[in-house]
């Protein structure tokens, strides 16, 4: 069996990469992908720890996260479509209707 530390290293890496994408990328689709990576980092952790759980709660939880993340992406993409129709861009630097005056 693969030692559990390896899973944790991978998941922490994924979490950091995801956060870096969220903070640096300015394209909304990339940001959404970064958020997806963070969700999956949590999934890896849950599945890895779930091996040791006789009730497999971690596995169940990760299935649920996948479902909810899909629902959230649907809403996100729907808003992205409306935003693109209205403003003709999905670059966060160019979306500046709302800001401090």
């Amino acid at each position: 069996m693969i030692p559990i530390d390896y899973y944790i290293i991978v998941s922490i890496l994924l979490f950091s990469i995801g956060s870096a994408i969220v903070f640096t990328r300015r394209n909304i689709l990339y940001v959404l992908m970064g958020i997806e990576l963070i969700f999956n980092a949590a999934n890896i952790n849950l599945v890895a720890f779930g091996q040791l759980d006789p009730y497999l709660n971690g596995q169940l939880f990760s299935m649920l996260i996948i479902t909810v993340a899909a629902a959230e992406s649907v809403v996100a993409l729907a808003i992205v479509i409306v935003l693109f129709k209205k403003l003709n861009t999905i670059d966060l630097n160019e979306i500046t209707q709302l800001k401090e005056k």
Partner: peptide, 30 residues
Amino acid sequence: KKSTEAGMKYLLYGAFATGVMLFGISLIYG
């Protein structure tokens, strides 16, 4: 224009916060 932008920003912050919470939950589970 304004409300979709507001919705988009709200969603990005919200989804990020949810992701962070999930990561924390997975660590607590461990």
